[in-house]
Write a protein that binds this DNA or RNA. Structure first.
Length: 734
RNA sequence: GGACGAUUAGCUCAGCUGGUUAGAGCGUGCGAUUCACAUUCGCAAGGCCACUGGUUCAAAUCCAGUAUCGUCCACCA
């Protein structure tokens, strides 16, 4: 051995950046280059993944590292297996999250809110922030060793993607699937925007259930946890068969004074009322409750809005006017007690609705918004899906459902199929308009009573564009095909779509996976991906999620600097099955750092042992020169290859990585090297021993490469007969 | 209220389609080591595989139920 580099223990930070640079400069992350240079066969199969775009709100955390590692391992494996392999990078503008983050930053640093800056300036500031974040993210993805084709990088809010969403919006609008309507939506008073049902979280909290009558003359008592909303009541609903209340149905009661407001309450019968719950009578507040809104629609009840966008009372009553809802609640309760109308107060626990981003309490409000109708029938225009014919009547819901029910998409682990189907079955129309400034503008213009929807601005004067932006998931839903060139009929789209694999966290099954299926089956007539691999959440050693409030975050770059990327990747691969959460432990990373060093030392030792055979040019390896014992070892090793290949093909990376680890250390290093060492020393069957050692080393470097790309590439470059890069070597045959 | 997951060595977890003495990492104990590696090697201790039944020649693995923990979904006012 003449290589000084090998003398010291393996030090990852000395090598990793240089190795990544070599890979990137080679151009082999781009499948076109691999085909052009004859590395990949022209007739080979395609393999494609699109990176779940990280939010451009900051830096990557350990969870991203985990997700990226899985994808890189499979991508490297597929590339080595000879497929035309494409992994597309990108970032997500993450409208709401980014908007909130930048607004908070400006508030903190300059004491200004977005209205102080104005829309144009604010959006400019967000874009500047996003540009910086994207740079950081790109650097971090390289650090992890991601073999992404940077020449195809995309962003959810660039011009190409904007054309995509405008095109789809228009088509949906023309199909009557996108509509504008005034109805009760989830309003986030803290974020000052509407949100979809999926962005609402539920948290159990204690509350008081008040039972009371509107007035001394009112015949029926009702129960509520929100008495302040009762000034907006226009009806009391009872079950049609309820003997207690039957006689009042159809009557209207005028209440002159309810906490300073005048009410007109009609008694109505509705099947949805549970006679067993509370008093069996439900005070109907059409403007501030989803169910009540629906009841009001059925009975043609008037609507009275009593709460505004800032969660303050929007009434004339001097008792309540402009008060926060929580204060108004106490005022009304006190008023009821004083008027002797309160019959019961009991503590209960109830689910309260919270906006997932802002953590503000969601206030149902009636608003004019844009929606996607998931239940409306339309004529399906494509004949490319096997289970739905061209010209058939479908709904978006049906499209989303049939893809999974027909097993057109293979879901790993399969238990998420049920979760998905259950969600679709309960799916309601999707509110897609947001009142934030950063995002894709809704491609609709108004002129008096006229409405225009289109990808291009109307030519004549006098049109004003809708002020709202689109839910960020509307654009994320197009990710697999918008990154490949749609709506143009590109080669990429033809070759790489549907993509082979998608690798999101299971928490994105509704937000994203379902929406990709919706958008892709609707717009392209294809499934977005053939396989989904749901990964779990990386937690801290106590099993808690990483969060800013707990201050338990771990910066992957720190871990990499201390232990090396390969060690971190192994720690995030071995033993972590699909859909399972894991606990991040430095001890595990350290163990794989030791493994990296083991690989380093064993490789050096093997090269020292076999150095003479190159001098007498007895290479390349020839299995016929092995003795019977060594042939048997090769046979056993082939079984390991089969096993590992099988695991890779079936998305069991956590097993494949462990198997190669175990074989290298505890079979190859502990047993085979030790054995060969003695034979070489004593010159017994030494030639066979050397052949065996070198063959096994090289083949194992290939098997290890998808998981530990840096150290294996480095060692590969030090082999006496290596020519090109390990990343484009052929996966071992068996 | 529904659905799902977990329960295996002191700790963190594997165990894929049921098949010889149930595995790994870390930790613990004893020993080795001028010979690639103290980021090493060998040996050892430590497990009614949550519980109860069932299917089977055979169950940690399949089925039913129970318990505990956890996650997701749901407009009970």
């Amino acid at each position: 051995m003449n290589n000084e580099e090998f003398k010291k223990p393996y030090n990852p930070i000395e090598h990793e950046d240089a190795i990544y640079k070599k890979w990137e400069e080679s151009g082999f992350f781009n499948p076109d280059v691999c085909i052009e240079k004859g590395i990949t066969n022209k007739n080979a199969d395609y393999f494609s993944i699109v990176l779940p775009p990280p939010n451009a709100t900051g830096t990557l955390h350990i969870g991203h590292t985990f997700e990226t590692t899985i994808q890189d391992s499979i991508t490297r494996y597929q590339r080595m297996s000879g497929k035309k392999t494409l992994w597309v990078p990108g970032t997500d503008h993450a409208a709401t999250a980014t908007h909130a983050k930048v607004e908070k930053m400006i508030q903190k640093e300059e004491g200004k809110n977005r209205h102080d800056l104005g829309k144009e300036e604010f959006v400019k500031r967000v874009e500047k922030f996003v540009e910086e974040s994207r740079g950081t993210i790109q650097k971090q993805l390289r650090k992890i060793g991601s073999s992404l084709d940077w020449s195809r990088e995309a962003f959810t809010l660039d011009e190409k993607r904007n054309l995509v969403i405008k095109t789809i919006f228009k088509r949906m609008y023309d199909d009557g699937l996108i509509y504008r309507a005034y109805k009760v939506v989830n309003w986030d008073p803290k974020g000052q925007t509407t949100i979809s049902d999926d962005e609402v979280e539920h948290e159990e909290r204690k509350a008081i259930m008040y039972t009371f009558k509107y007035s001394p003359d009112f015949p029926i008592a009702i129960s509520t946890t929100r008495p302040e909303t009762k000034v907006g009541d226009t009806a009391v609903a009872v079950h049609p068969d309820d003997e207690r209340y039957k006689k009042y149905i159809g009557q209207t009661f005028e209440i002159e004074d309810f906490a300073g407001e005048k009410l007109s309450i009609k008694i109505i019968a509705d099947e949805s009322v549970d006679p067993e719950f509370g008093t069996g009578a439900l005070g109907v507040t059409p403007a501030h409750s989803q169910i009540d809104w629906e009841i009001a629609q059925r009975h043609n009840l008037p609507l009275k809005q009593v709460i505004n966008e800032y969660a303050r009372m929007f009434v004339e009553s001097s008792l309540l006017k402009d008060k926060k809802t929580t204060e108004a609640r106490d005022v009304v309760a006190q008023w009821l007690r004083e008027k002797k109308l309160m019959e019961k107060e009991e503590e209960i626990s109830q689910n309260i609705s919270i906006a997932d981003r802002s953590k503000g309490i969601v206030e149902p409000l009636p608003k004019l918004q844009w929606f996607i109708n998931v239940s409306k029938e339309f004529i399906y225009p494509f004949d490319t899906l096997p289970y739905i014919k061209k010209g058939e009547k479908v709904t978006l819901k049906k499209l989303m459902l049939s893809v999974v029910e027909s097993k057109s998409i293979n879901i790993t682990p399969d238990r998420f199929e049920k979760v998905y189907i259950n969600w679709i079955e309960n799916l309601r129309d999707w509110c897609i308009s947001r009142q934030i400034w950063y995002g894709h503008r809704i491609p609709v213009w108004y002129k008096g009573e006229k409405i225009y929807c289109g990808a291009e601005e109307p030519k004549e004067d006098g049109w004003t564009q809708d002020e709202d932006t689109l839910d960020t998931w509307f654009s994320s839903g197009t990710w697999t095909f918008s990154t490949l060139g749609w709506p143009e009929k590109t080669e990429d789209l033809k070759n790489y779509h549907p993509t082979t694999l998608m690798c999101p966290g299971y928490e994105l099954i509704f937000f994203w996976v379902a929406r990709m299926i919706l958008m892709t089956t609707y717009a392209v007539g294809q499934i977005p991906f053939k396989n989904v691999y749901f990964h779990g959440i990386v937690r801290d050693t106590k099993g808690r999620k990483f969060s800013k409030s707990l201050d338990n975050g771990i910066d992957p770059i720190d871990v990499i600097n201390q232990y090396g990327t390969d060690a971190l990747r192994m720690a995030l691969t071995v033993g972590i099955g699909p859909g399972n959460d894991s606990k991040f432990d430095f001890a595990k990373v350290k163990a794989y750092k030791n493994f990296a060093n083991k690989i380093w030392n064993a490789s050096r030792f093997v090269l020292e042992q076999i150095s003479d055979i190159f001098e007498v040019s007895k290479m390349p390896f020839d299995i016929s020169r092995l003795n019977e014992e060594d042939k048997k070892i090769v046979g056993e090793f082939k079984n390991v290859i089969i096993d590992i290949t099988n695991d890779m093909e079936n998305y069991r990376f956590y097993l494949a990585a462990e198997k190669i680890y175990h074989y290298f250390w505890h079979t190859f290093a502990d047993i085979i090297i030790e054995d060969c060492k003695n034979r070489i020393k004593e010159n017994q069957e030494a030639d066979s021993a050397k052949q065996l050692l070198y063959y096994l080393l090289k083949e194992q470097l290939k098997l290890l490469h998808p998981f530990m790309p840096f150290i294996t590439e480095k060692i590969w470059s030090l082999l006496p007969d290596s020519k090109g890069l390990l990343m484009i070597e052929k996966w071992p045959k068996y």
